[in-house]
Write a protein that binds this DNA or RNA. Structure first.
Lengths: 226, 226
DNA sequence: ACCTGAACACCGTTCAAGT
DNA sequence: ACCTGAACACCGTTCAAGT
């Protein structure tokens, strides 16, 4: 928030992806190693499990050594998140012109990538958009314009898909309750006054993937209509 | 996560809303006062600003006194979030049968309520759904079924709207950058290979409210189609 | 039934220093 | 250029005790 005095040492700027020539020497600590280890730690211990001390331990260094390569713990979060979101594109498409299949593929992959690292969902969205996230937005934009979305609607269309994916993913990651938890929640509905959603078993419905796809279809129908 | 030994003192269970008879005595500490003060503190200092010590200070009590009324800091977050989301319904409607206006009103109010307390967006979604959130879901469900959404589509329809609102709100709350930040981000697009979204000025578009409404219309079109 | 202080086992980051 | 330990100013929560 408030600008932090300086930090203007020789670090590379955050979240850029220019090619880095691997030096032949074996620097024991590097941005790349720190980020990769942070992801491992987050996968193993969750969001609260990542502390600078534990991260340094895993890397075999002192805590403060990390701060040469990285600005702050927030910086580590930004980098770890983006590192989990790279996208290599759809498999060879039967019909390369099928924009709808292409966008569904990317968005399902996006969601799946985040759900493989559930901490990433609670981290989103961050102030800083990394190169992988921007790359996905760029790709979406191209597909949508091939699909005939008008320029005037383009930004709203992109953000509506973004919103949908983010909401779905964040929700799915945090509602991963045990069956008992879900049953208890549903139970509560009966005893109080939520009869309609009790009857439709809103909190018991387990088909997250199907619901994601169905809602996405609603939205794409709306986008391509007219 | 792991069940915490007992805590089975005389506390009321979390997040229920049964009527509470106000006793004539003036207990200096109460669940209600704690939650209200937590909201004030969050509004003033943000998510990281809420600590149990600071909360106790504001209430003029010892830290540990809070734990009589509340299970943990997580519990305080659950309660503070739900307390910010109560809904009194739309103003008297010109056409009471206009389901679309009614749902737009509730969802815009939902988003607005959370944006008034920006910390609430980063808190969502939580594992526990409080009574105000459940009440909104119940209301949505009734409106949608009046709108003719089939029972088989109901849960997917509800979650798709939920996803959209959550994604939009969380994003809007965290992207509240200064104009300088946004300009810098947009600048980065030019220098790298994100030409399409650069050209549409995706990161500069300032009309969040308009984009929210537009995307919501896309989704509602899809939901009510056919 | 409700409140308390002391203590425990941690945090992120600053700083001055080492090589 | 890169790494370090000590120190600072905090955390949430357990526990045993008070009234």
């Amino acid at each position: 928030m408030a600008a932090k005095r300086s930090g203007a040492r020789g670090k590379r700027s955050r979240l850029t992806s220019e090619p880095v020539q691997e030096p032949s020497g074996e620097s024991p600590l590097s941005r790349e190693r720190i980020v990769a280890t942070a992801v491992d730690l987050l996968d193993a211990q969750g969001l609260d499990g990542l502390t600078m001390r534990r991260l340094a331990d895993r890397l075999g260094s002192g805590v403060m050594s990390l701060y040469w390569h990285v600005d702050s713990k927030e910086d580590v979060f930004d980098l770890a998140l983006d590192s989990v979101l790279d996208y290599r594109g759809p498999p060879e498409m039967a019909e390369p012109q099928n924009w709808r299949a292409e966008i569904v593929h990317m968005l399902e992959d996006w969601r799946a990538g985040m759900l493989r690292h559930p901490w990433s969902a609670s981290l989103l969205p961050r102030r800083a958009l990394g190169p992988n996230i921007l790359g996905r937005l760029e790709r979406m934009s191209k597909i949508l314009s091939r699909a005939g979305v008008a320029d005037a609607d383009m930004n709203a269309a992109i953000w509506s898909l973004w919103n949908y994916v983010m909401g779905a993913t964040v929700t799915r990651a945090s509602f991963d309750l045990s069956d008992d938890d879900r049953a208890a929640a549903q139970q509560r509905l009966t005893s109080e006054r939520y009869l309609t959603i009790e009857r439709s078993r809103l909190l018991l419905d387990n088909d997250w993937d199907g619901a994601f796809r169905k809602g996405l279809d609603f939205l794409l129908d709306g986008l391509s209509r007219g």
